[in-house]
Design a protein around this nucleic acid. Structure first.
Lengths: 206, 206
DNA sequence: CAATTAGGGTACGGCGAGTACCGTAAATTC
DNA sequence: GAATTTACGGTACTCGCCGTACCCTAATTG
């Protein structure tokens, strides 16, 4: 019952090749990933589910992690920046969205992958697009509007500054093992750190 | 040559028990950890090196990760907060120290362990003492002095605010796979984020 | 219709975690 | 100081799973 092979083992089917097979493998990997997480993603199961064997997988991906990342990328979504007209509301909404994402099954998978990659730059780079760099864009967007409104300082339009809130939130997940961050924490990050940082600040007298 | 059994296998030694044996195991684990990292820490090797067998280990630690963490804790050191008389200098020095630590072999091990723990709260908690919460203390110390000097705002004396710089730095390690963070990044964190955040800020006019 | 390429089937090597016994030395009890 | 309990030592084994190696055969190429 756990199996749902796309291809019947010995039906009179035609043998798949190239892109068709590749997609079938990737789809199988995605299914395994969503069902069992990365820890449960085994090459044998993916092969069986795709109705093929490990050879075909290893011909395309060098190892389990690479396959896992490729599969995850199929699931990634992009974030639409909110526009409530108020900086604090925008920030909170964006941050709550991030919290929801990392608390979701998909977020759990992302955390597993980050863990498994454990400092392997080449592979991490492929996850960053989904997790941090692409994540900088919406923050810059809402800050841009806030700057126009006079709510935020222009200095805040700097990726490192703009993303401080998400970085602090991610820290909660990485260092505490919490499955989800309580809303108090988000509010605290926003009110104690983020807003004081980005709000229009009068040039400090040396 | 990789072996240095504390106990000669069949010498006329007395059989070790309890605390004595426990320390021998832990010392063996520490040695393996420093030589081969957590990835190379094998229960068999630790047992061999301690001149015992895996039973004795599993009777004390439930699994490899728990042993690794216990061994790491033997190596942890505490940080002495600097006191240069200038907030920016103190901050930079503390941050550079953290960067050095995470770039060091010991830091690599810590990152491996964080990776392997991957969100297991109970075990992570044992690492936090060494990595984040204990790390909050020196920051509060230097900030306390800066507040007294009038250099920093009293609102900065809040763990989440005080540790922002290290959290951002750790993020560099976790999300980029960099073996070490370039000094520019540290300076940027300090000048673009940390100082603007903690410096005396005149109450924003709504 | 050859020749080449890529899938399918299958088996296997290797490694390391965790477990199961069993005999024996050390501590504990009386 | 003997009997009992507890804990170590030795060893062997199961299990899971990654990654690889063949060998045969279907699809593609020309």
């Amino acid at each position: 019952m756990t199996e749902n092979p796309t291809r019947q083992p010995s039906a009179g089917q035609t043998r798949r090749r190239g892109a068709v097979l590749e997609e079938a493998i990737l789809r199988a990997a995605v299914d395994e990933l969503t069902e069992s997480g990365f820890a449960g993603l085994t090459m044998d199961k993916v092969a069986a589910r795709a109705g093929t064997n490990k050879n075909a997988i290893y011909r395309r991906w060098p190892n389990r992690l690479a396959l896992g990342i490729a599969a995850y990328r199929q699931l990634a979504t992009t974030v639409q920046p909110p526009d409530t007209g108020d900086l604090r509301s925008d920030v909170l909404e964006l941050l709550r969205g991030a919290n929801r994402h990392w608390s979701s099954p998909l977020g759990a998978i992302l955390r597993e992958l980050l863990s498994a990659a454990g400092g392997t730059s080449e592979l991490l780079a492929q996850l960053q697009e989904q997790s941090s760099d692409a994540a900088a864009a919406p923050w810059l967007t809402i800050l841009g509007r806030a700057v126009a409104r006079g709510e935020a300082s222009p200095e805040a339009l700097h990726p490192r500054v703009a993303t401080v809130a998400v970085v602090l939130l991610r820290n909660e997940f990485v260092v505490r093992g919490a499955p989800t961050a309580p809303d108090d924490v988000l509010v605290e990050i926003v009110d104690e750190v983020y807003l004081p940082l980005v709000r229009r600040r009068d040039p400090a007298p040396n």
